[in-house]
Structures are given as C-alpha cells and as structure tokens.
C-alpha cells in the first residue's frame, strides 16, 4: 500500500490542534474562529442527528439549536475534545427532544424511528459514480448494524476520539476500541477480496 499517504495520522493531529486553537480564539470572542469551528464540526453533528432518525429539516434545526446552546456554555469548555463531546451529546439530546415531540403528534411506528437513515441501495448506486465508492458502500451495508452505526460516526471524528464516539452512540467508552477494531478488520477483509476496490 505504498500509494497511501503516510502523513494521515499527523494530519489529523494537526487538525485537532487547529480546532483547539480556534476554540481558544472563539472563547475570546473571535466570531471568525467560531465560524471555522462550525464548518469543521457541522458534518459530524449532522451525521449524529440523522443517526437518531431525524428528517433532514429537523436535523438542520437540531444542529442550529446545539450551536446556540454552546454559545451559552462556551466559557466552560476547555479543550477541543471536550468541545466535540459536548456538542455531540447536546445534538443527541436535542434530537431525542424533537423525536419525542414528533411522536406525540403523529403516531409514528417505533420501528421507523429506530431505523437507520442509510439510503436505499437504489439511490446509492446512482449517487456514487465511482466504482470503488460503490464497492465500499456495498461492503459496509453487509456489516452488522452496530458496526455500521459506529463507522458512520468514526469516519467523521479525528484520530478517532473515543469519548466523542461513545457520546455519539450511547455506548460505553471501553467498548468503542474493540468494536471499532473488529468492524474495521471485517471491512478490510471484505475489501481486500474485492478487485473493484482499491485504497486510492
């Protein structure tokens, strides 16, 4: 695998350091720094809200509410890791709240709410133009739901930060590492056997 860039781990450490530095400036009242933090973390928060079964518009509102809540509590947050964990926890809590309201209004089927928002195989084939992307998605779809849920979050988290992942999934922190290891090992095995997939 000589064509895989060797500095990935270093790049994600840099990213964490950059986030920490922006958090410092945001806390000092720098709006541009806060904007950058928003851009960096919105994809993760979006994924967390969608993983709770929210519709797109509900998820967008939950992400906004989460940031509004953060501004109130920004002075209490000291590190980039604590920031991400706090945002993820708040996004989950807000998502439950929205889901609870929706449940009271229309008698949703519980199974619908719990179902993962993974797109159907049909649209995925149309949306993914590259063969290697389609191959990856097909193999991910064969993993157990627990693995899929974990990898969806881990993919959007640096390093990955186990505290953040545990908060996002409501799983004990200690089980994140082993589960991640098993799920990735299984996925790698399937990908290695698939000639249509390559790492780059």
């Amino acid at each position: 695998m000589s064509n895989v860039p060797v500095d990935r781990a270093g790049a994600s450490l840099d990213r964490a350091a950059r986030l920490g530095e922006r958090l410092e400036r945001a806390r000092a009242g720098d709006r541009d720094a806060l904007d950058e933090v928003v851009r960096e973390l919105n994809p993760l928060l979006w994924r967390v809200a969608r993983a709770q079964g929210l519709a797109a518009e509900e998820a967008a509102d939950v992400v906004q509410t989460t940031w509004l809540e953060l501004v109130r509590g920004l002075h209490t947050i000291r590190s980039s890791s604590a920031l991400t964990a706090w945002l993820v926890t708040t996004t989950r809590r807000e998502s439950w709240r929205v889901r609870g309201l929706a449940q009271r209004q229309t008698p949703h089927d519980a199974a619908t709410l719990e179902s993962s928002p993974d797109p159907d195989p049909g649209p995925a084939d149309q949306l993914l133009s590259e063969e290697r992307d389609r191959a990856l998605w097909q193999h991910v779809a064969r993993l157990p739901e627990r693995c899929r849920a974990l990898l969806r979050i881990v993919a959007h988290v640096d390093r990955p930060d186990y505290t953040v992942v545990a908060e996002a999934l409501g799983m004990p922190r200690g089980s994140i590492g082993p589960t991640r290891g098993r799920c990735l090992a299984k996925l790698r095995e399937m990908l290695a056997a698939d000639s249509t997939w390559s790492p780059t």
């Binding site: 895989v4 990935r8 919105n42 994809p43 979006w46 994924r47 969608r50 998820a59 967008a60 992400v63 928002p117 797109p119 649209p123 995925a124 949306l127 993914l128 290697r132 992307d133 990856l136 998605w137 991910v140 990898l151 969806r152 881990v154 993919a155 959007h156 990955p160 990735l184 996925l187 790698r188 990908l191 790492p199 780059t200």
Partner: peptide
C-alpha cells in the same frame, strides 16, 4: 484511508 473514503461516501449519499 477507508474511513476518509467512507466519510466522503456518506456525505455524497446524505449531504447536510
């Protein structure tokens, strides 16, 4: 590399 690719795929399938 796999996780980065998965992040890109997820964003393509379900973009914010």
């Amino acid at each position: 590399a796999i996780l980065d690719q998965l992040a890109a795929v997820l964003t393509r399938l379900d973009p914010p």
